[in-house]
């Protein structure tokens, strides 16, 4: 199927000898927005990190297919260049490297083409305006001294600039105020088209109020225990995760 972007089959993942994911199955097609919800410690962040093959996590069994390739054991940078992006829960700080220079460098790596500087700066400026970001941040060191909200918006900015086929947003909505959540949703809507997909990982339902999603998956104790539509998120908002434990 040419519409299929990501397929995870029977994924078991360990971190420091503890099995965290116990058989994940997930299929994402082009044009879809998926949400993985789950209580703390259920394996949400591990799922995101396992897709990007973070060396801290060990895949015991299972496979990840992306855009027609088996990427299970690819290196993180190869996966990123193939078209998967992850927005971090806690973005790292890089002193001495400005946001502009970092993005220019990363875009060059991801596209494999030299970046046209004036076009690039215009693009950056346009996105920053849409995301209500201070243009002065462009010349500041990446994430250094940024507030929590600025860091999260900066992740969304990176997603827009790098334009991946699949964007994984790990707890991008947590710790944000109402206005910032709206800005993040706006960024996701700007990014989204029929040829790419978004996977949102969250433990609350706030972001789902301002964004239309196609599938909601409930992750409990390393397994997806239920899949549904937006109504499933509403049900969890009312009743919590207790019924799935």
């Amino acid at each position: 199927m040419s519409d299929q972007l990501l397929e995870i089959k029977d994924l078991h993942v360990k971190a420091e000898d503890k099995e965290i994911l116990k058989g994940i199955y997930l299929k994402i097609n082009k044009g879809e927005i998926h949400v993985i919800m789950g209580p703390n410690g259920s394996g949400k962040t591990t799922t995101a990190n396992a897709i990007l093959n973070n060396p801290v996590y060990h895949k015991v069994r299972g496979s990840i297919e992306f855009d027609g390739e088996n990427i299970t054991n690819w290196k993180t940078d190869e996966i990123a260049r193939r078209g998967i992006f992850m927005s971090f829960q806690l973005p790292e700080e890089i002193p001495g490297v400005s946001v502009t220079n970092f993005l220019k460098y990363a875009k060059n790596k991801v596209t494999g083409r030299p970046v046209k500087i004036f076009e690039f700066k215009d693009e950056l400026k346009k996105y920053m305006e849409e995301l209500n970001m201070n243009p002065k941040n462009m010349e500041r060191s990446l994430n250094v001294g940024f507030s929590g909200g600025e860091k999260k918006k900066n992740e969304i900015l990176q997603m827009l600039v790098l334009n991946p086929k699949l964007a994984i947003l790990d707890e991008t909505d947590s710790g944000l105020d109402v206005d910032a959540i709206k800005t993040v949703s706006k960024g996701i809507e700007m990014f989204k088209n029929n040829n790419n997909a978004v996977l949102i990982i969250t433990h609350n339902t706030k972001i789902l109020h301002s964004l239309k999603v196609d599938y909601v998956h409930v992750l409990v104790d390393g397994k997806i225990v239920k899949t549904g539509n937006q109504n499933l998120a509403k049900e969890i908002e009312e009743n919590g995760y207790a019924q799935y434990k």
Binding site: P55, D77, F85, K109, L162
Partner: peptide, 30 residues
């Protein structure tokens, strides 16, 4: 240099060598 920082940069398409060089260049920038 932390493994977390390297993973962050690699998730943006930089190879491990590129990531380390970027961190060192940033450190030397002042």
């Amino acid at each position: 240099i932390s493994d977390k920082t390297i993973f962050y940069l690699m998730s943006r398409g930089l190879s491990e060598e590129d990531a380390k060089a970027m961190i060192v260049r940033g450190f030397a920038y002042p």
